[in-house]
């Protein structure tokens, strides 16, 4: 009951829109109860037992400009929180070992492998995932549009990570050369081998059409 009163008091302080957002977020906590995932497969049983005994925490994280409240295990990775508790499945898990970049997100504008970032580490920091790149009107981000125009994705599994890495690159260097882009993107694997198409897309997004290679 105490929580309920607190929630009502808080609601009076919040705008209607903000309140609804938080209700939705707490709903996500409830519905994710059966999806408690440790990402601990492969760890020694003793390690898992020790961590399982640690206190669980309800924390708030800023994801794509929204404050999301979520129940997070001590050992939980950001990729698992995003995918299994916040429903943001655009962030992909491929290696789960910081090798491939399929899970790339931006934290305070810097790319991170969310498979190897603990969710507890991102409190009070701004997380941007692939779902956060579209404009308020639903329009594709210019980088996303360039990826479409260049038919850059193939199977598409690495693409969200490639897009986020490219957006982060252009935020810190709006006009990279093709070679600079290649270096910057080197943390993102694409087994289909669409690298040249991705580089074309980044050059298109920068307006550097002279470095788009076709034919």
């Amino acid at each position: 009951m105490a929580e309920s009163i607190d929630a009502q008091a808080e609601a009076r302080r919040l705008s209607r829109r903000e309140f609804i957002k938080r209700v939705i977020a707490s709903g996500a906590v409830a519905s994710s109860a059966s999806f408690v995932m440790g990402g601990m497969a492969g760890c020694a049983p003793r390690t898992r037992a020790a961590l399982a005994g640690a206190a669980e925490r309800l924390i708030s994280i800023d994801v794509n400009g929204e404050l999301r409240r979520v129940d997070v295990l001590p050992q939980e990775t950001l990729a698992m929180t995003l995918r299994y508790k916040l429903g943001l499945t655009g962030t992909k898990l491929s290696c789960d070992r910081a090798e491939c970049g399929a899970c790339t997100v931006m934290i305070d504008g810097v790319t991170h492998y969310s498979c190897s970032t603990l969710t507890h580490m991102v409190r009070n920091r701004k997380v941007v995932t692939i779902e956060g790149l579209r404009g308020a009107d639903g329009a594709l981000h210019p980088v996303q549009q360039a990826f479409v125009d260049e038919l850059a994705p193939q199977c598409g599994f690495c693409t969200p990570g490639q897009v986020v890495a490219a957006v982060a690159l252009l935020q810190r260097n709006p006009n990279p050369t093709r070679e600079e882009a290649r270096q910057a993107m080197a943390g993102n694997l694409c087994r289909c081998g669409a690298y040249d198409s991705y580089l074309n897309a980044i050059m298109r997004a920068t307006g550097n059409t002279g470095e788009i290679h076709h034919g």
Binding site: L88, T89, G90, T91, K92, T129, I130, E131, L133, R134, L140, Q144, F147, V148, L151, A152, P153, G156, F157, T159, P160, V163
Partner: peptide, 12 residues
């Protein structure tokens, strides 16, 4: 299917 691949909406 290409838009869904760049927005993360493609479901595997």
């Amino acid at each position: 299917d290409v838009i869904a691949k760049v927005t993360g909406e493609a479901k595997y």
